[in-house]
């Protein structure tokens, strides 16, 4: 128990050490303020941006875009992935195209989206949609493929209708993978929007960082960067919380079974991020 508790703090040692060093160098005045402002200055800039409402307004713009584009990607990506998982031939037909598109980073498409959709919200939503779509589709498809064959045989032997197969087998059976895809998609969305706002936007956290750069306000750039990082962590934590809340039965099948033989076989769990 002690080891576990200590384990949770281990990850904080490095950032706290870095912060301490930053404080010490900032306090002694050995930092070049044009390159690296002191923590105090960054905090002042943070307070100013908060009081002024600028930070909240930029953050709000980014979040609205992210959730809008992500919701679209989820609405399209989950059903598409489930269909692809259910139809084995789809991998043969669409696999190479998907693989190609996955190699093209969303930022590379920003100029094209600007050309197609003009300036405004549409190209940003398109970037987020593109960034989130592939992890969602790929994981949903894999989730279906990972449903053990014996359960498909059960559904056939019980003559389940396509609707019942979807409701009782495909959706719950792939749920863990679908959520992993949504989580990855959300992370990709956040990263993509910041990049998009840096290149083509008049609001958002990415825009805040770029404006600070053009005004040589390194302290505000730091505020923006730190906010991007912390928001990413918060969004990821929120998705994990939702996942843990909505996938209880998936998690519970991994629990220990009674000692007698012949219980049910637990299916594979969703992959870790490293695995993907």
């Amino acid at each position: 128990m002690e080891r576990t508790r200590w384990g949770g703090f281990k990850g904080l040692v490095f950032p706290l050490g870095l912060l301490t060093a930053w404080f010490i160098f900032g306090y002694t005045g050995k930092l070049n303020q044009q390159i690296l402002p002191s923590p105090g200055e960054v905090l002042s800039a943070f307070r100013y941006l908060c009081r002024d409402g600028l930070l909240w307004s930029h953050l709000g713009s980014s979040l609205v875009r992210v959730f809008g584009g992500f919701a679209l990607a989820a609405l399209v990506g989950v059903p598409l992935g489930l269909i692809m998982g259910c139809v084995p031939q789809s991998q043969t037909w669409f696999g190479p195209t998907l693989h190609f598109l996955r190699q093209v980073p969303p930022t590379a498409l920003i100029p094209l989206f600007l050309l197609w959709f003009g300036i405004g919200e549409a190209p940003k939503l398109a970037v987020i949609f593109y960034a989130a779509l592939f992890p969602i589709v790929v994981n949903a498809a894999r989730g279906v493929q990972e449903i053990p064959g014996m359960y498909w045989e059960v559904s056939r032997a019980l003559c389940l209708s396509p609707w019942k197969t979807l409701k009782y087998l495909v959706i719950p059976g792939s749920w863990g993978f679908v959520f992993t895809g949504l989580r990855l998609g959300m992370g990709m969305s956040w990263r993509a929007i910041v990049a998009a706002e840096m290149l083509a936007s008049a609001s958002g956290v990415g825009y805040l960082v770029m404006t600070a750069r053009s005004l040589a306000r390194v302290d505000e750039m730091f505020v923006g960067i730190l906010v991007i990082g912390f928001m990413g962590i918060l969004i990821d934590a929120a998705v994990i919380t939702i996942q843990n809340h909505f996938v209880p039965s998936w998690r519970s099948v991994q629990g220990t079974r009674r000692s007698e033989k012949g219980g049910t076989t637990a299916p594979r769990t969703a992959p870790s991020l490293q695995e993907l």
Binding site: M150, E153, G173, S249, G262, T265, A266
Partner: peptide
């Protein structure tokens, strides 16, 4: 009706 060698109960139901 078929009863398989393993129970094959859907774990999420």
């Amino acid at each position: 009706g078929l009863v398989f060698q393993e129970p094959r109960l859907l774990p999420w139901l």
